[in-house]
Simulated assay, not measured.
Amino acid sequence: MTHDLTGKTAFISGSTAGIGFATAKGLAERGARVVLNGRSAQSTEAATARLRETLPDAQVSGLPADLSTAAGVDEAVAALGQVDILVNNLGIYGPEDFFETSDDTWQSYFDTNIMSAVRLSRALAPAMVTEGWGRIVFLSSESAVNIPDDMIHYGLTKTALLALSRGLAKRLRESGVTVNAVLPGPTSSEGFVEMIETRTAETGESFEAAAIGFVKEARPSSILGRPTTPEEVAAMVVYACTPAASGTTGAALRVDGGVVESAF
């Protein structure tokens, strides 16, 4: 079995920062041609330059597109051509009380977190089947099975991705295309870092102490006792994209630090 991805093309939605960027870096390190994606040309170009600086020999390009819209997905698909690896990473999150969450907010989360993945997978999977090899990974969350009461709208979309991943894996059975979901827990991506920095400004704690404190308060079931890093989550995503993971499909792969109170 091998982790080499030379000759494969990978597209990672929402990959200008955080888990998406770390995933792009990990795939590029294994020889894949990587296409980064952001909503704006500026953010996409900046991320592409950053990755090229880190990995000068990597094959890296950028594709700005608003994948929360059907038109944006159509434009991206037309520009991409053949894709062997699709990582549906694009997502938005934020706390809001259920009774204050408007229809527009629900629709925005549905379009961004679910429909971007539906449309990209529907457009790109058939060519993978024709080739007899492909990898599709959905970034879900421990919030999919541990629905937060202050982010019901977010949790619902992540649960939907689990259903989508499992169903698509079964639809593509015996095709050589594997489909899996990865479930991170609290992760020190940009949004998390900003939240913790706000906390440190108020409490005077160190960043590390504040991050650990948040996990212990908000996710007391965590076995790890700290947030994971984007690189730790990306390691699981990258593995699922390699030939070494050929026997893994239809799975929910947890990188949640043990937050979910289940052995299965």
Rank of each mutant, 00 (worst) to 15 (best):
Glu205Gln: 15
Ser116Gln: 03
Thr6Ile: 11
Tyr93His: 11
Arg173Thr: 12
Met1Pro: 11
Leu162Glu: 13
Ile92Tyr: 06
Pro230Lys: 09
Ala65Ser: 14
Ala10Met: 10
Gly225Phe: 06
Glu131Gly: 15
Ala117Thr: 02
Val73Thr: 07
Ser206Arg: 04
Leu51Val: 08
Ser206Ala: 06
Ala201Trp: 00
Glu261Asp: 12
Gly176Asn: 12
Val145Gly: 00
Gly26Ile: 05
Glu142Cys: 12
Ala17Lys: 14
Phe264Ser: 10
Arg166Thr: 13
Thr44Cys: 15
Ser116Ile: 01
Leu90Phe: 02
Thr6Gly: 13
Ile114Asp: 00
Thr48Gly: 01
Glu261Asn: 11
Gly62Glu: 01
Val237Gln: 07
Ser68Ala: 15
Ala244Arg: 10
Ser175Ile: 09
Leu63Ser: 11
Phe110Gln: 05
Ala163Asp: 09
Glu205Leu: 14
Thr200Val: 15
Asp256Thr: 05
Val35Phe: 01
Val238Lys: 07
Ser13Cys: 05
Phe192Ile: 10
Gly38Pro: 03
Glu174Ile: 07
Pro220Thr: 04
Gly7Ile: 10
Thr249Glu: 00
Ala125Val: 14
Tyr154Val: 00
Glu261Val: 13
Ala209Val: 09
Phe98Asp: 01
Ser108Met: 12
Ser61Ala: 14
Arg254His: 12
Ala245Asn: 03
Pro220Ile: 04
Tyr93Pro: 00
Phe99Lys: 08
Glu131Trp: 00
His153Pro: 01
Asn37Met: 08
Thr130Val: 14
Gly31His: 05
Thr187Arg: 09
Val83Tyr: 06
Leu120Trp: 01
Asn180Phe: 12
Met236Phe: 11
Arg39Phe: 07
Asp103Lys: 04
Ala211Ser: 15
Glu100Met: 04
Met236Lys: 07
Thr130Gln: 15
Arg122Asn: 03
Gly167Arg: 06
Ser121Asp: 04
Thr178Ser: 15
Thr178Ile: 11
Asp4Trp: 00
Thr187Cys: 14
Lys25Asn: 09
Pro243Gly: 08
Ser116Ala: 13
Thr54Ala: 15
Pro243Ser: 08
Trp106Ala: 09
Ser165Ala: 15
Leu120Gln: 02
Ala209Cys: 02
Met128Thr: 09
Leu86Ala: 03
